[in-house]
Design a protein around this nucleic acid. Structure first.
Length: 597
RNA sequence: GGCCUUGUAGCUCAACUGGAUAGAGCACCUCACUACGGAUGAGGAGGUUUGGGGUUCGAAUCCCUACAGGGUCACCA
């Protein structure tokens, strides 16, 4: 779908068909696509779906339609028929008009803000017992990017995160810190808070393993040995104290979580992402409990003899699912019910919530949405689980206990350092201040990383080979950035004001110029599609295709040096459009474009 | 075992949701070259789209089936 032209063409085809064959096709039957380069023409109408209604073989109907369209539309100056494909050539005036319109449009690619309903996007959902890793990076970049795409598509967007700050796993690092920490703090060690706490989580695991080994040596099986482990018992006791509001435990919990939040903030800042509002499970699980009990009273849920509360989803093809334990304590689902309801209460007119969570939780979200619906939240129908595949390493899944995690901070640093040394080697940063070099290394290095993670369709699991995955050449952010910089450089040196450019309507566009125009003009439709599919990879790949065309165009088309004034203006306009289109697209991926590199 | 999901060039990914001769990048081999910024461009080679059936004007895409990976079916989160 290219802006202005295709909608115009769509209607022209409907009218021409009706005039020729006496019937009006449905919108669905009109398929317009870009003409393949090996054929003459710009836009192609696929006539096969219309042949039946026309009562003629596809190539005959195509021929007739072509004739009529050419007669009726002064902006179509030729056509060709290949089998059931009608290839239409558009006039230069038609292209120039569409380009001029795009040039006048502010925020090219974005729909009117607020023209679509308000949506909430959740991403990140970290635990407060360990640092962020590569999997979180995919999650966070994906959620952040989707929120920007939704915004560009005209939605109001609220970005939130849920923080998993309670439960036995949190107590583990607290117990270990008390046992082995000797009062260490991030200030005393100079360590990032999340890293410090994570270290004690690992220490707990190590101590637990030792206890289990010792227990098994006494003849217990693995489960019994874990139950008998002294350090495990401590953790359980601490959880009980926490739930009972024990002052010391709560104080320690606040302190250690505070360290982690400081660490996370640093990482989020480096990533270039932010949130509008934070939710904590410690704040929402009680609401979840009361909602479940309420649901039980209303007969939506049922209770077993032991007192546990369940929902029966067999009608929906699922199983019975536990919502509250017999002892009245909350499970994962309880919390999520509470969180969801709280959010609907916090933001009235919220059309839906989008949860960016790994695909291993698909079943969980199916259940959650059904439960919400039964509780009477109609919005839950349009809720969406933005599910994404695992990031796999060559040696398999990441496992924190086996030390095969790729740490988020470390990876970002490697990316910055690599970008920096490449810039240095190429002699690109002479005359840059240290601060400018840092900025550039961050834009390029982090850009490469974000692009790498976002160019793959979310549903797919992806391979990350630390040794060779991340590249700075080819289909990468640095390649895109480089070409945008080149583009900007031309506009800068010519002093071009894009909105002041004018050239003749009759200026002829050659094949590569039309290709650029097509890429620019189809961008708004790509953004809409990406929003509907929650898929940033569509935007990423579109930006790459467009900039690649530009790079090729640049090679053998003079722009600033062109002597024909009309052609020069048209090429400058195209360059400006490519530059802003790609910059907008990349911004939707959270990737910045430098001025020089 | 039930359900979900994936399988495309040596590797990492596309393919406008059923359209024309399945496209890119990396790696490999040619060629262009003091370029309006070479972090470049042009070309070559590389495919029975996991196998087998089916649906139709037309299938990587839809259906059936077999095979292979991943996930899930927790009073973990």
């Amino acid at each position: 779908m290219i802006h202005l032209i295709d909608s115009r063409l769509h209607h022209a085809v409907l009218d021409a068909f009706e005039a020729t064959f006496g019937k009006r096709p449905k919108d669905q039957q009109i398929q317009i696509q870009t003409t393949r380069p090996e054929f003459e023409g710009d836009r192609t109408l696929v006539v096969f779906p219309l042949a039946g209604m026309a009562g003629a073989p596809p190539h005959v109907a195509a021929e007739q339609l072509g004739q009529v369209l050419q007669e009726r539309c002064d902006w179509i100056d030729g056509f060709g028929v290949v089998k059931g494909f009608l290839n239409l050539s558009l006039t230069d005036a038609c292209w120039n008009e569409a380009l001029a319109d795009a040039l006048r449009t502010p925020h090219w690619g974005a729909a009117t803000p607020g023209s679509r309903p308000k949506v909430m996007v959740e991403y990140s959902s970290p635990n407060t017992n360990k640092p962020l890793h590569l999997g979180h990076l995919r999650n966070i970049f994906l959620g952040y990017s989707v929120s920007r795409i939704l915004k560009a598509a005209g939605h109001d967007v609220v970005k939130v995160q849920i923080i998993n700050d309670r439960g036995i796993h949190i107590c583990k690092s607290m117990v270990a810190w008390k046992a082995f920490g000797q009062g260490e703090t991030p200030t005393s060690t100079g360590e990032k808070g999340d890293k410090l706490v994570g270290r004690y989580y690992v220490a707990f695991d190590k101590a637990l393993k030792a206890d289990i080994a010792e227990g098994m040596a006494r003849g217990l099986d693995a489960k019994e040995a874990e139950a008998a482990s002294p350090i495990m018992q401590e953790a359980r006791e601490m959880l009980q104290k926490w739930e009972n509001g024990d002052e010391d435990v709560v104080a320690l919990w606040k302190t250690m979580n505070g360290w982690v939040y400081d660490g996370f903030d640093e990482t989020y800042k480096a990533m270039g992402v932010d949130f509008d509002k934070l939710y904590y499970e410690s704040d929402t699980y009680l609401l979840g409990k009361s909602q479940v009990e309420e649901g039980l009273k209303r007969g939506v849920f049922f209770q077993k003899e032991d007192g546990s509360i369940w929902v029966d989803l067999t009608e929906d093809g699922l199983d019975e699912k536990l919502l509250l334990r017999a002892d009245g304590t909350a499970v994962y689902m309880t919390q999520d019910i509470g969180t969801a309801i709280l959010r609907f209460a916090d933001f009235d007119n919220l059309d839906r919530q989008v949860y960016t969570v790994g695909n291993e939780q698909e079943y969980h979200f199916k259940v959650l949405f059904l439960v919400l619906k039964r509780l009477g939240f109609a919005q839950a129908e349009s809720n969406h689980h933005l599910s994404y595949g695992m990031v796999e390493l060559p040696e398999g899944k990441m496992k924190s206990r086996e030390g095969t995690v790729v740490d988020a901070d470390d990876l970002m640093k490697v990316m910055r350092d690599t970008a920096r040394s490449i810039s240095n080697d190429l002699g690109k940063v002479e005359g840059f201040s240290e601060a400018e070099k840092d900025d550039l290394a961050q834009m390029v290095g982090h850009g490469a990383l974000k692009y790498f993670l976002l160019k793959v369709a979310p549903a797919k699991s992806m391979m990350f080979d630390p040794k060779s995955s991340i590249d700075f050449f080819g289909n990468t952010a640095p390649f895109i950035q480089f070409n945008v910089v080149r583009c900007k450089s031309i506009l800068r040196t010519t002093g071009t004001q894009a909105d002041a450019l004018s050239w003749s309507e009759m200026t002829a566009l050659d094949d590569s110029e039309r290709q650029l125009a097509t890429g620019v003009l189809s961008f708004p439709a790509v953004v809409q599609e990406a929003a509907e599919q929650y898929d940033p990879s569509l935007v990423a790949n579109h930006c790459y295709d467009l900039i690649k065309s530009f790079s090729s165009f640049y090679q053998d088309h003079p722009i600033a040096k062109e002597t024909n004034e009309d052609i020069r203006s048209m090429r400058l306009a195209l360059s400006a459009l490519v530059s802003t289109t790609v910059s907008h697209g990349m911004a939707m991926l959270g990737i910045d474009m430098p001025e020089r590199m």
